[in-house]
Nucleic acid binder design. Structure first.
Lengths: 202, 202
DNA sequence: TGTACATCAGTGAACGCGCGTTCACTGATGTAC
DNA sequence: TGTACATCAGTGAACGCGCGTTCACTGATGTAC
């Protein structure tokens, strides 16, 4: 922090980006201001990132890694039952969107193309992998004959959670009022859906 | 168009905004460029809009009105059956997001607060009203005793459609690859969900 | 253990750029009489 | 029907601002010997 060399500038820039994105959204975040926030001259970030886009992509990648860890923890090996664990994933999804709006925005609203870098794509795929694996465990609780495709189930869960997150569970924009908590809305939706697949609740 | 007075500048600015948003996203759209696109000096737009934000809000409002018309047309009075008509609404939703990305972005990703103006809020409410009314007709096909709340159903449909739209059905960002068409993914999800509510398909 | 030196991570000044906004203004339009 | 005049919708020049990016540079660090 003191002295000519910052010593940890890359991390400081990521921190600054998260703070700024949280305050003004992805589009309000600038390279120069991130440098200022990190207490460094406007030319310094170029030692670590080629441009603003690359810093954003790095933030998004870290976001997906944190997201994956959050979802994996919520899954907890599918205990006590896959359905209950999947519901925990759903709630963890919304909690992440609410408590880490900067990460969430960089991941999903950044205009950062998913294949801006291989690392970003991989991180995104791994996060989705948690959901997909959960969906697999859940569909395996029904007889093989009437078993729905796990990929489809995972995509439905993801879409529903993301839809609720971006419509109702963002802290910054007071999007729409809801007659219930977003987490409850998601859980209700998941239960109805799983019923529709013939999956028992317990 | 010719002469000192444009004659139709407000409309031209909206057109320009749509074109620019479609090309570079909401955050890439600027007041000055909209003026340039409309063939007018950078000071001219101030005769019609207080600032960039107000123009954006106007675009979003018009978007919601077009959206409402699209959804209402798809609903078509709930014929031949409410469930089929609801599926048509779902597909129309995704088609709108795909073919009118600029409107969709202004409506949902603009950072335009829903209550930037009463007109905007009303337009948004009316668009959602179509979905809500459709949900009401659909739930009324089940006996009152086991009838789910229409509001909840409408919110689930909206969230699922919006989630699929923003994850998979935007033309600009090649978000994620899908093993199926977004419309099919949504229809499958809706059918499973309605099954879960005990609503027959026909 | 000291020293020479390569490498690295910063500085700070400068640039061109486009944006948002303002200002006094002026050409066109419409209306009162 | 003609004319005077108020109003309106535009002009264009100017401003301050912050951003992205570059450049030659310099202080700090680490390593070979």
């Amino acid at each position: 922090m003191r002295g000519y060399h910052h010593g940890n500038l890359k991390e400081a820039l990521v921190e600054a980006a998260l703070k700024l994105i949280g305050q003004k959204g992805v589009s309000g975040f600038t390279f120069v201001e991130a440098a200022r926030e990190a207490g460094v001259s406007p030319a310094a970030p170029y030692r670590h990132y080629k441009d603003r886009e690359q810093l954003l992509a790095d933030v998004a990648r870290r976001g997906f890694e944190a997201f994956e860890a959050t979802l994996a923890k919520a899954w907890n090996g599918g205990k006590p039952t896959p359905v209950e664990a999947l519901e925990r994933i759903g709630r963890a999804y919304l909690t992440f969107a609410r408590t880490e709006p900067a990460y969430y925005a960089a991941m999903f609203e950044g205009g950062v193309s998913a294949d801006a870098s291989p690392e970003l794509r991989d991180a995104g795929d791994r996060a989705f992998g948690v959901l997909r694996q959960a969906a697999e465990a859940v569909v395996e609780t029904v007889p093989e004959k009437s078993r729905p495709p796990a990929m489809m189930v995972a995509l439905h869960m993801w879409s529903l959670a993301h839809g609720i997150a971006s419509l109702f569970a963002r802290p910054d924009d007071s999007r729409r009022k809801l007659p219930m908590a977003p987490g409850d809305l998601l859980e209700a939706g998941m239960l109805v859906y799983l019923d529709g697949l013939g999956i028992r609740r317990s």
